[in-house]
């Protein structure tokens, strides 16, 4: 996998290569070169399988990190391509011409993180949430607990047990809370 990185380095602005296992590695690429790199990996390096495509919200750094997980069936290597997007301008080039399922991932990312992929088929259609008018729910600042308390109401007479206190009593009765 390191050899692959060395081959890619003169062609694309790839950085921060990290070999997680012998068959799994990650690298970073700036947003503007990402689509070209992914196309190159698919067409010339044998990474024909889009395993999944998702994002991580690093709110403290002001970025969304996109992860394109690609797989090469011939060499059995899996490569995660990381692309950082500014949270202030979460727009990315669509890869729907490369894989049929990419449009669905992009539709999901639009709904769940608010990341836009202009031109991606159906990207503005609801994926799971109908009539959602809150912020995209997978963003870190969306508080599931506050939303639940605001939206739903407690059932009268229902007893609640704090899971943490219960596990403490069951598993570590002799240890105090640290």
């Amino acid at each position: 996998m390191k050899q692959l990185f060395e081959r890619l380095r003169p062609l694309f602005a790839v950085t921060d290569f990290e070999q997680r296992r012998t068959d799994l590695a990650f690298l970073h690429i700036p947003k503007d070169y990402a689509e070209m790199l992914i196309r190159h990996l698919r067409d010339h390096e044998g990474f024909s399988h889009l395993v999944f495509f998702t994002a991580v919200d690093y709110i403290e750094d002001g970025i969304f990190r996109l992860i394109y997980m690609l797989h090469n069936y011939a060499t059995k290597d899996t490569l995660g391509v990381y692309v950082d997007l500014s949270r202030a301008e979460p727009v990315m080039t669509s890869i729907h011409p490369l894989w049929e399922q990419a449009a669905l991932y992009q539709r999901e990312l639009k709904e769940m993180f608010g990341i836009d992929f202009p031109g991606s088929p159906g990207v503005d259609e609801d994926f799971l949430l109908e009539g959602w008018d809150e912020i995209p729910p997978m963003r870190r600042e969306f508080d599931t607990r506050a939303y639940a308390e605001k939206t739903f109401f407690p059932r009268a007479g229902r007893e609640k047990t704090d899971p943490r206190a219960h596990m403490q009593a069951q598993l570590y009765p002799d240890e105090g809370e640290k």
Partner: peptide, 16 residues
């Protein structure tokens, strides 16, 4: 370790 205070070292992986 005590699973209530268990911190997993930083990193990322994909298992299949």
């Amino acid at each position: 370790p005590n699973v209530l205070h268990w911190k997993i070292p930083p990193g990322e992986t994909y298992v299949r």
